[in-house]
């Protein structure tokens, strides 16, 4: 996760770099460290260092990581020739390297030579079955071709090997959601909550999927998880709205029978109050819209 302060720092540096104020290397390092995707900037300013012999050699051994970073950015920008140049330099410096081999395979992928890239990745995996980046490239490649079911297969294979990769579970859940396979997404989020019980983001996502599935039992569970999102991470607009939606939907399903207990009614009015207070402070122009929204949910 990138914090707000880090993001501001990157944006400040980017601005400075764009206006010729220096700090290019610092900027590139920060983008690399935070794993941000600002490929157009990395390509433009990375090349400005690499094309300048003096600046380039001043980097020392970091020069090679920059070649790698720029190569990946270039492929992302469809500047395959620039990527090829960078990879050539690396091939000369590190003949037979697996890490460079990975870039070569990625270049095949960037050029849309899917089966060649597939073969290259497969042979890389034969030599090192635990290369996470290559596994993930295969998933990404299936996605790029619009072959979602293959992407799901590769991700499941990957998760058999790397069960603790939370990002991958999340990715799988999001693919399932995009295909409206909500039950499968529920399973992924349950897995995530089991392994990281205190991360509010998983609770929220789990509740959102349960609400989408609908049905009395799912709605009731969703409401509990919205509440635990707020409990473990402070206020969250999404979770507060979630509680209001659940209460409203449960009310419609039960039509007032099955009287909700007092705690649950209190939870609902507290959520509405928290939202109103927050909007008054930070979005005063939307207070009246919020009030009518809550009214239409019969709160």
């Amino acid at each position: 996760m990138v914090t707000r302060r880090e993001e501001e720092e990157v944006n400040r540096l980017e601005n400075q770099v764009e206006n010729g104020g220096g700090g290019v290397w610092e900027y590139l390092c920060l983008v690399h460290k935070l794993k941000l995707r600002r490929s157009d900037m990395v390509l433009k300013h990375g090349l400005s260092i690499l094309n300048d012999k003096k600046k380039r050699s001043a980097l020392g051994p970091e020069e090679w990581t920059l070649y790698e970073q720029v190569a990946v950015a270039a492929m992302d920008c469809q500047s395959n020739d620039a990527a090829k140049d960078c990879i050539k330099v690396l091939q000369r410096k590190f003949p037979g390297s697996k890490r460079v081999g990975r870039l070569e395979a990625m270049l095949l992928e960037a050029r849309g030579l899917w089966s060649e890239a597939e073969n290259a990745y497969s042979s890389l995996l034969e030599e090192n079955p635990f290369d996470q980046v290559v596994h993930k490239r295969r998933v990404a490649m299936a996605k790029a071709q619009g072959n979602t079911s293959a992407a799901i297969d590769w991700l499941n294979k990957y998760l058999d090997l790397f069960m603790a990769d939370h990002e991958a579970w999340r990715e799988l859940a999001e693919i399932y959601v995009s295909l409206q396979m909500y039950k499968q997404a529920v399973f992924c989020y349950e897995e995530l909550i089991l392994s990281q019980p205190t991360v509010p983001l998983h609770h929220l996502a789990y509740a959102d999927v349960l609400y989408t599935l609908g049905g009395l039992e799912n709605l009731q569970t969703a409401k509990k998880y919205y509440a635990s999102t707020i409990d473990s991470g402070g206020k969250s607009t999404r979770a507060l709205f979630g509680i209001c939606l659940c209460t409203s939907a449960i009310g419609q399903l039960t039509k007032g029978r099955n009287k909700e207990d007092k705690d649950s009614l209190e939870l609902q009015s507290l959520s509405a109050m928290a939202l109103e207070k927050d909007y008054k402070q930070r979005a005063p122009s939307k207070v009246s819209v919020l009030s009518s929204t809550l009214r239409s949910l019969k709160i």
């Binding site: 959601v177 995009s178 959102d208 999404r238 709205f241 819209v289």
Partner: peptide, 14 residues
């Protein structure tokens, strides 16, 4: 996460 209902419902009402 376009396929999720809660944010969509809130946004459409608002």
């Amino acid at each position: 996460q376009i396929g999720l209902l809660p944010p969509l419902e809130i946004s459409l009402i608002m």
